[in-house]
Simulated scan of single mutants.
Amino acid sequence: MSGLRIEEYPDRLVVTLDRPEKRNAIDADLVAELHGVCAELEARPRLLLLTGGTAGIFAGGADIGQLRDRGRLDALAAINAGVFARIRALPLPTVAAVDGPALGGGAELAYACDLRVCTARAFFGQPEVRLGIIAGAGATHRLPALVGEARAKELLFTGRRVDAAEALRIGLVNRVVEEPDGLLPSANELLDEMAKGSTLALRLTKLAVDAPPAAHPHLDLVSQAVLFEDEEKRRRMTEFLERRRSR
C-alpha cells in the first residue's frame, strides 16, 4: 500500500505522507516512494509541497522497528540521508507544511526542504541520542545552518522539543498558522509567489544559494550570463517597462 498521496498540478506536486497508522514513520518503502517523487521532479522540474496533511502529524521519525535491526552497512548506505539529500537538491524550491510532531527523521525531512510552514500545534525534535544513535540524516549540518551552531548543538545534545512559537523565533520555520485548516493554503500561497517568477531564474537562484562559498562569485556570474541571454528575461523586462509607462 502506498505511503504517499500525490497530487499533480502544472507548476507543482503536492505530496502527502499517508501512513497514519504508523504516525507517518519513515520506513524503507516510504523512502523508495520519495525517491520516485524525486525522479519525477528531476525529469520535469516543478515546485514541491510536502506535508503530512492536517490530521495532527507530520512524521514521527524513522520506523524504529526497522532502525533497531539495521547494522553498520545499512548506516553507510545512507538510506534516509540519501533521499533527504536528493530532496534538498531538487531543481526548484520545496516547502514542508508541518502539522503536529516532526521528530527525528521527520524533522530532518522538513529541514531538507527549502522552506517550512507549520501550525501552532507543530513541534520539532531530535531525540536520537536518547535512542543511542545520532541524527544522521541531515540534522547535524542542516540544523546549524538554520538556527546557528550553539542552538543546534543544544537541541541535538538534549533532544529537547521546539514548539511552533520558538521555531518561528529562531528561524526554523518561515510561517506559523494558528489553525490546521490554514496550513496548506499558507504553504501554497508561498509557492504561488514563487511561481510568479521565471522558472529558470528561480532554479539558478536556488543553485547559487545552495552552492558552497568557494563557488561564489563565479557561479553567480555564469548564472546571470545565462539569464541575460534568456528570452523570458527580455519579455519580463519589456512588460515591466510598458506597465511603468502606462501609469
Rank of each mutant, 00 (worst) to 15 (best):
L109I: 13
D210V: 09
G52R: 05
V222R: 09
P180R: 04
V162Y: 00
R86G: 06
L183H: 03
L200S: 06
T51K: 02
L73W: 06
G60P: 01
E7H: 10
S186W: 00
E239I: 08
A208N: 14
F228P: 00
E154R: 13
L207R: 15
A152G: 07
V176Q: 07
V95A: 10
S186H: 00
L156H: 08
R203H: 01
Y9C: 06
P127C: 01
I57A: 09
V129Y: 10
A152T: 09
H216G: 12
L109D: 06
A201P: 08
I57T: 14
E178A: 11
A43K: 14
A25R: 14
H218E: 13
A208W: 05
N188V: 07
V31E: 06
P213W: 00
E42Q: 13
S246Y: 01
E40W: 01
A78P: 00
L109Q: 08
T238P: 00
E178V: 10
L172K: 08
R72C: 01
Y111M: 15
L168K: 15
L90M: 10
V177D: 09
L76F: 12
R12V: 08
H141D: 14
A152C: 05
D210H: 13
L156G: 06
V37W: 02
E128I: 02
A85K: 08
L204T: 10
L76Q: 13
A89T: 09
I64C: 00
T205V: 00
D63Y: 02
V222M: 04
E231D: 14
E7L: 11
V129I: 15
T51E: 01
G100W: 03
C38N: 03
A215T: 11
L183V: 09
R116L: 12
G106I: 08
P185I: 10
G171A: 05
P144I: 08
E33Y: 01
L172R: 09
A167P: 10
G138M: 06
A89F: 05
T199H: 02
L47D: 07
G182W: 04
G159V: 15
V14M: 05
A32G: 14
R121H: 11
E178I: 04
V15A: 03
L47E: 08
E242G: 02
S2I: 01
E42D: 14
E239F: 05
L49D: 04
A135C: 12
L207S: 12
T16K: 09
K233V: 14
G82S: 10
A215D: 14
E193C: 11
D181A: 15
D29S: 09
L155W: 04
E128N: 06
D220C: 00
D192K: 07
A112C: 09
G182H: 12
